[in-house]
Design a protein around this nucleic acid. Sequence first.
DNA 1: GATTAGGGTTTG
Length: 638
Amino acid sequence: MSLVPATNYMYTPLNQLKSGTVVNVYGVVKFFKPPYLSKGTDYCSVVTIVDQTNVKLTCLLFSGIYEALPTIYKVGDIVRFHRLKIQVYKKEAQGITSPGFASLTFEGTLGAPVIPRTSSKYFNFTSEDHKMVEALRVWASTHISPSLTLLKLCDVQPMQYFDLTCQLLGKAEVDGASFLLKVWDGTRTPFPSWRVLIQDLVLEGDLGQIHRLQNLTIDILVYDNHVQVARSLQVGSFLRIYSLHTKLQSVNSESQATLLALEFHLHGGTSYGRGIRVLPESNSDVDQLKKALESAELTASQHSHGIYQSEHEESFPTVSSSGSVSLFEEERCQQLSATILTDHQYLEKTPLCAILKQKAPQQYRIRAKLRSYKPRRLFQSVKLHCPKCHSMQEVPHEEELDLILKDSTTNTPDTKLQNTLLYDSNMWTTEDQGGRKVAVHFVKNNGILPLSNECLILIEGGTLCEIYKLLDKFHSVIPVRSGHEDLELLDLSAPFLIQGKVCHYGCKQCSNLRPIQNLNSLVDKTSWIPSSVAEVLGVVPLQYVFVMTFTLDDGTGVLDTYLMDSDKFFQIPASEVLSDDDLQKTMDMIMDMLCPPGMKVDTYPWLECLIKSYYVTNGTEQQICYQIFDTTVAEDLI
DNA sequence: GATTAGGGTTTG
């Protein structure tokens, strides 16, 4: 530091920037793309900062040297830029590196030590800088919401983007466009990770460790521009992977059971800061991660030692409850169980300890208690499932739905498409909302308008609130827009049919939309059965399902099993539960009955269940999963 | 010496 002549740097507040000037600035990172190789000659990092003036500045930072770009690990970090050029792009100020650009980065956490991260050999750092950093920390603590995207694997949900801090255990070439990373963070995902098929020999890493950690490891596929970065990573290093995408996939296995697996993708491109950054051992998050890994490793090795022993024992014979159970006893058991079987009553009961030692696929009848279940919140357990491609997605929230409807109906209704043989039309112009036009088309039955409670209406430009109001009076609503020759369905992000308070969605991948006029081919134009409407419109309807993990315990062993069910298990339709307070209360009641809060496990009721076992395959190893089937909650509980 | 990218998720 002493080699640098004492310079008094002036820092320009972000609300006083002038185009064409070169300035020094301080700011809190609001958004950033970790450095990546640009299509030119340099590395690039895009960083948006904000300061106490509440003005944002997006900066384009280029350098031929990766380390010369700011070492930002997360949103909330504080940066100091020297010699940043201000220019105007799309009528807004923009920062760009100018000759001699240099940066310092600090942790943004209040109270954390103020240690600059930089690759500069010599830099100016005074008590004034110290004060600047602390002032920004204080300001940010009340003006910037903490990032919610840094998640542990145990907290990830199907279908989300998040940032993962992890250790690299293995890597493998998959094909030119994708590369496999095997990582862990010491916690277990709510569903087992998918296993990407690779040739055994191409996996680089400690195979023994990967095998021992089993489902504590996840498989991440990285694509396109991330492949070469991934290829260069050192096994054992600590990483932060930004904007990692999860997707829950169900695949029908040989045993006909549905396998649920969580996929992890780092898609191509750098949108939303997608990328990978190596974290140094000195990073405080790495410190915490290491502790979590150590304790998880300990548990895993104990566990794997147990499995090792059991592999050398004779495989456990299927235990029948008492040789032959009398019919009377059988009935009594059924009555005492909170769940009953809807088929396969002839199967004999198997203790969980025996199931845990057997191969898949098998079907079992068990009697156990529900120790715990996930997710705990009802709305998190309801998903949309495509019976054709088995993809799983979240149910859009009402606010989301409102936006989807707004976004997909920007064009005004075309009067040429109104009043056809299929429907009579009416159009309104709203007064207070900038003249928004709403068209409603009343679908006729053989040229005659039916009673309103049997009438399907097509609506253009209506808000969710307006649609709900119309549903009080009319049978069903289909949101549409004016196409070139016919009214057409909106993008399948929007429901293709709404009845009561239930939105019926279609699968974007499997549907092949057909013209609205095809509604004419429906013979029955009064009952509007969703599956029939879907069929004539070329929509593959998504099914509402409950997806839950039940941890079952019968005193001999503990088993995690999945439940994927539309209405048979709880006898509550998953499609209606989100919009019906009474059904929600019933659901909560059932769950409290099956797994009473604040009570000892001994006092929980017994559940009689049928479960299927099946394999999740992973080139070198196989993991067994279990799913509940043909079981229903006893009626006297509902 | 200019270029790179110019925040706003893939569709594997």
